[in-house]
Amino acid sequence: MLNQMLKTTMRNRHPYLFIAPALLILILFSLIPITIAFVISFTDLNLKGLADWSSINFIGLENYTTLLKDTVFHKAVFNTLFYVVIGVPLVIISSLGIALLINYGKNLIFTVFRAVYFMPAITNIIAVAVVWGFLYNTEYGLFNYVLSLVDVDKVPWLEQPVLAKLSLIVLAVWKGIGINMIIFLAALQGIPNSYYEAARIDGAKRWQVLVYITIPLLRYSIFFVTVTTLIGWLQFFEEPFIMTQGGPLDGTVSMALFIYQRGFQFSEFGYAAAGSFVLFIVIIIVTLLQFKLKKSDVDY
């Protein structure tokens, strides 16, 4: 019986051979880690525990209760919300606006514009942060120089908690427009011309066409962009990591940066894992909530 089973598996081995390498890597570095993260979030694993497993203790929910009292974590949650609430609508509105403008024409100029607006999306985030750090520099930065031409005092772009958050958002919006613009453009080009013609015959004004035809037909892509952008912004990390290291006064620390700092700068692996699970749960809740809202919507 067992022999028989082994034989059939040997005969049908090819599909398994094809999927094995990728599958093994995914299991090892994606599925197993999430279980490990869950388990160690209930322990006090740190650098010492890494060297000597017997010194690791199960501490129950202590990491999670400490998180609730940790003022830095509070700040990280607040800052992440701040980034999401301001950044996500800004990205969606500007990428949709630019897509509508670019969709206006079909000739070469518009293809060039598409490339220009897309460029920030594929440039290296570290290079971007380095360049923007220079632009934002209080003494020698271009922004303050331009402002000085119209007699505005030097603005400390990255040195004041609220302003620093806004400065990081501007940079992230600049980088985030490209991909979403492309998605909107693809959707816009999929709208049949007959809809617009019908509207024109009915004498609809431009804004009416936009509000009653274009936007409703873009509902699916707007939903998609909202979900992916929201998930991305909840994991806001590189911008504060490179430009402000979370400062000033933890004013720009995001949840993702908090997890990184706890894990790799303070080596509190258990505590960091607990933080990462909180982030994971937030992401799941937000995503499910959106799908729920979407379902209650009417279909066309």
């Binding site: 999927i19 570095f29 994606s30 880690p33 993260a37 997890i259 790799f264 994971f280």
Partner: peptide, 29 residues
């Protein structure tokens, strides 16, 4: 092959896991 759909869903499920969650365990592994 046997379990094809289940395995494929498992593959897709890995897309939902944020990098920050696997970062520390992968380092430990």
């Amino acid at each position: 092959f046997k379990g094809k759909d289940k395995i494929f869903y498992l593959v897709l499920a890995t897309m939902m896991i944020p990098g920050q969650v696997t970062m520390i365990p992968v380092y430990l592994l």
